[in-house]
Design a protein around this nucleic acid. Structure first.
Lengths: 208, 208
DNA sequence: GTCTATAGGTTGATAGAC
DNA sequence: GTCTATCAACCTATAGAC
């Protein structure tokens, strides 16, 4: 394989490493895991990108798994906050769109990185199913707010898709020159279009 | 890791293997690559699922890579057919939706399997970029029919998303009990909702 | 904190008998 | 066609010096 030794930090192998080596490892690992995938990225790759020895990583993390895990934790935390917020909202017509748009508004560039990482590593996510870091299970509770057991499967799925428009946009944008802003704007349009279909009775008043 | 030795064929390790061993290998490999990912699936996994020896695979395929490659080829072929069809269509208003729905109509269960495989193995797809089997490049030519260089990035991305609704639906459906039909129905709804936004002047006449 | 050295375990692939 | 045997390569992780 043409292993082209991806440039990671923007600079050469990081020469001067600040006091927060741990954070730098995470930054580099995030990039490599996203570009080459978790399994295809070796601990040597990460260490080399930082100009350090492979074994030195193990002073900061107890295993390769602990590195991804740490990366996922942050994302799971943000998600939990969103879930709390939405559970606290009164159920009102139009809440689906309101919630979806809020989810989009609070999506930072870091969130986008995290989503790219998740998209690039489905196996890692799958391995975390059932654990504290299971991302999908958090969304389940959100979806349940808008759906009851009698709701047709197709509609249940559409509700999920409303909250997954950012991932969908990232998927379609992959390999193109689309900016982060374009991705978010497209996701917003998609969320609006989908909710329009799920909550057609609108366009009149907006709740404060 | 709790390697639970996934049941693949529905039956125990395939006892009687027909004359088309090659096809069986492909079937099993498709399933394993989708469930565990290409890198995490060993040639031993594949062989065991078929009740044969690891080295025997190399009589039918020259390498592990050749197995995935063969899997991707079929999908690329179907895509090319769709591209030819759409290029032959006259450009008319509403073509975007017409094309998207046709794309959905011709989506067979096998296509869904192939898309699941692709979603589960982003790294494999990336490795194929630029080659004959690059799937995304085929879509580029489709998207170009509906977009010119001056089109805003956001709209370009939305057009891509119109053709990616099946992948998006599969992504959201992952881990749920949604059937293939529900996935396709949701994808259809999404395509309609998105094209409604991109081609708002409709709902009047439909071209024959 | 970072290094050298190395253990211990897999993995993809080949050689050759049957 | 399938098997046994085997290998070289590579990877994660640990031990211990500095």
């Amino acid at each position: 394989m043409g292993d082209v030794e991806l440039e990671v930090a923007g600079a050469e192998p990081v020469r001067r490493r600040g006091p927060e080596t741990r954070a730098q490892i995470l930054r580099v690992a995030m990039q490599l895991f996203t570009d080459k995938g978790f399994e295809a990225t070796t601990t040597r790759d990460i260490a080399n990108a930082l100009g350090m020895n492979q074994s030195s990583l193990y002073y900061h993390f107890k295993s390769k798994d602990a590195i991804v895990t740490s990366l996922v934790e942050q994302r799971r935390h943000d998600l939990d906050e969103f879930v709390s917020w939405i559970r606290a909202q009164p159920r009102a017509p139009g809440l689906l769109r309101t919630a979806a748009l809020r989810w989009l508004d609070q999506t930072t560039p870091e969130h986008l990185h995290a989503m790219r990482l998740a998209l690039a590593n489905p196996t890692v996510q799958q391995r975390l199913v059932g654990s504290d870091l299971d991302v999908r299970s958090a969304f389940d509770t959100v979806v349940d707010l808008f759906v009851d057991p009698e709701t047709p499967d197709t509609e249940q799925l559409l509700v999920r898709m409303v909250f997954d428009t950012v991932s969908a946009a990232l998927l379609s944008a992959h390999g193109t020159a689309a900016s982060a802003d374009a991705v978010l704007a497209a996701a917003r349009e998609a969320s609006i279009a989908l909710t329009e279909r799920l909550e057609p009775h609108r366009a009149t008043h907006r709740q404060s």
